[in-house]
Design a protein around this nucleic acid. Sequence first.
DNA 1: GTTTCGGTTCTTTTT
DNA 2: GAACCGAAAC
Length: 635
Amino acid sequence: MNFKNALNEEQYAAVTAPDGPSLVIAAAGTGKTRTLVYRVAWLLEQGVDPSRILLLTFTNKAAREMLERARALTGDAVSGLLGGTFHHLANRMLRRFAVHVGFGNDFTILDSDDSKKLLKSCADDFKMDKKSFPKPQVLMSIFSVVNGRGSDLYDELVDRFENTEVAYDDVIRVHDEYQQRKKAQNAMDFDDLLIYALKLFRTSERVRDEYQERFQYVLVDEYQDTNVIQADWINYLSGKYNNLMVVGDDFQSIYSWRGANFRNFLDFSKRYPGTKTYKLLTNYRSTPEILDVANAAIAGNPEQFQKELRAVRDGGVLPVFASPRDGSEQARFIIEKAKDLKRRGVDLSDMCVLYRAHFHAMELQMELNRASMSYVVTSGTRFFEQAHIKDVCTLLRILVNPGDELAFTRLLELFPRVGKKSSLKVFRKLGGRVNLQRKEVCMQVEAALPAGARETWKKIEPIFLAYREENLDTDPGEIVYRFNKAFYSEYMVENFDNAKYRAEDVDGFIDFTSKFETVESFLSEIALQTNLDAEENNNEEPSGTIRLSTIHQAKGLEFKVVFVLFLCESMFPGQKAVEESGDSEERRLFYVAVTRAEDHLVLCSPEVRRQRDGGIIRLDPSRFIREIPTQLLRR
DNA sequence: GTTTCGGTTCTTTTT
DNA sequence: GAACCGAAAC
């Protein structure tokens, strides 16, 4: 393979970097993925065994894309290479060694919905005063930051709730209870996967040695988004051979709210003496006019590797700034503009509307419907977290992990006249373990149910018994199918007004399960793979369809045309975000949005926002707009 | 004591 | 939409 021809000088240097630690500072649109993929190819060509290379990413999408591209480049030579998200790797290891950290290897993974429910249940157990006790969502986000930073919960609570009524001790008690309940039901939340994977490396020499020996080369994507746990874990993973290459861009660090610390990135060469640093600054994506805006937008931010994107493309048109009167006019303006560009030969699928938060796009969605334009929203609600999908998975969860309290209570709550209290009572009466493969346990459950719910139970009981008799543990779809047929399809009709749509979802879901060979691998996969539907939409690339997305979800993507909505003070930058941690991360988010655009960039800042109750709020243009020299924008 | 139901409120960002 | 709250119904 001719690497010199395929790469520019900057990329070539990084791809062919010698052994040892290397830091690749890859600005937006400079071929970061390309560089990583060629690095893999390069290592393979040097004779490195693919199974001894580890490639870590943050999202499933990124992992999939890189593996596909590597395969396209090298063919089967790449087989055996381990590539995936941090959470995937952690899950993989813990399925083998969870017993070393006090869990069963058949542990359940709690998604954010499960975690919140469990936390709520813990708070209810303590009868916490409803008014002053923080909501599960708020607590989860604090716990997550504490986990990510490795900071002290108490300090964080003081920081967050000073001058409020919140009793820190109560929160800490609930937190401890939450930890215990997870252990008791053999379940880990997302953070736990990382925490216990790291703990495994800290405490078990055998495990550490095995993996350190295996991973001769470690490549990490988006390193600026790692938290303390991930950075320490990476340090262990690459600890023996020290061939660690991390790639990232401090300008695009947008995950500090979940504990990411781009100091990991800035201080990389301090942590790893002898680090070779490579910079990719040549931008192939955008016109010079767009890059001028990007460079101007980010220049004032503190604490960063100073760098400017270099354009190689020819000049294009100036980015546009518009201030429509309100959200609807903004929506109509975008639709007109999109139609206009379409007439000039740009397909709608090459356009993307970006925004800070999903609800910013409500009015646009309405107007798009009215104009009968087709659009896709990159999943706000995640496919596997929808109620009906989670419902049909409860049986599988209980069968795999009889201690799964959340799954068991969820199942019982589907029955008539059974709610939170009764379901938990039944679960506790049975000793916190319900092995439904055993006939006598099934009968105990039945006896414990209120009379009105027993009939329903009888309908699904045969499925549990068949699980072992017919060896259905290799066929997750069959369980879901039988459950749906025996009970759930009817339940949907009675309980959802859009039952038909949900029924289709469930059918599609059953087809999807056929890809998996064991119930366990299936369950881990859907817990970690939060949006399958987005993945499928991406593959189709429907032409004539405009895409709507949050900026976070558009990271790493590029579009010929990019619209940015609601660039107004208190919306973008978001008020809460600024209050909590200043505006620098919001500014980086804006930078990410701008650098997605190849040819056309349209920034919108409506003058007012209409509220549900009919009220009108005046909006000021975002500081990010004001920071851009006026001659760089066309009004 | 629980469950259900109807009305109200508010939406950050993700594995 | 879904999470929450209070009141009515079981």
